[in-house]
Amino acid sequence: MDRISPSGPVVRPTYGAGPANREPANLGDILERVLDRGVVIAGDIRVNLLDIELLTIKLRLLIASVETARELGIDWWEHDPYLSGRDRELVAENRRLRRRLSALEGREDADA
């Protein structure tokens, strides 16, 4: 509903958080704001059959920039071997350990 101001022109109510003459934000601006502040999305999915819980899935998603995540104390990607390129070292170490284990198990069988 329009209101008439004392000075004469029609004043239309504005809705939202900003002034009416504010330019619409583009996708880059929105993405920058989201990454700067971070967004948390949380939800639970439960599947029940006759009041028996069959499945529960808990979803937690944090969308933030690397800098914001570090400020929050989140830096798992720096230590994850599959993301840091150390996965090849782990695969090779796993093979060596399996060979040693097989050799040790073979010795125990021979002693018994």
Score class of each variant (00 low, 15 high):
Asp44Val: 10
Arg99Asn: 10
Asp2His: 05
Arg98Met: 10
Val11Ile: 13
Asp75Cys: 04
Asp75Trp: 01
Tyr82Thr: 13
Leu83His: 02
Ala92Arg: 13
Asp29Tyr: 01
Ile63Leu: 15
Arg70Phe: 04
Arg99Gly: 03
Ile45Glu: 15
Ser7Ile: 08
Glu32Asn: 06
Trp76Leu: 10
Arg12Lys: 14
Arg37Glu: 05
Met1Pro: 09
His79Arg: 13
Thr68Ser: 03
Ala42Pro: 03
Val11His: 05
Val66Trp: 02
Val66Cys: 02
Arg33Glu: 02
Gly8Tyr: 12
Ala25Lys: 13
Ser84Lys: 02
Leu55Trp: 03
Pro6Gln: 09
Trp77Tyr: 06
Leu72Arg: 14
Ile41Pro: 00
Val66Gln: 07
Lys58Ala: 13
Gly43Ala: 11
Arg99Phe: 03
Leu27Gly: 05
Ile57His: 05
Glu32Gly: 02
Arg95Glu: 14
Gly28His: 05
Trp77Cys: 03
Leu54Gln: 09
Glu53Trp: 02
Glu78Asp: 13
Ser102Pro: 00
Glu105Met: 08
Asp87Ala: 15
Lys58Ile: 08
Leu49His: 11
Leu55Glu: 10
Pro19Arg: 15
Arg46Tyr: 01
Glu71Cys: 06
Gly18His: 08
Arg70Cys: 00
Ala92Thr: 12
Arg46Cys: 05
Asp80Gly: 00
Leu31Gln: 06
Ala64Ile: 02
Leu49Ala: 10
Arg86Asp: 15
Ile57Trp: 04
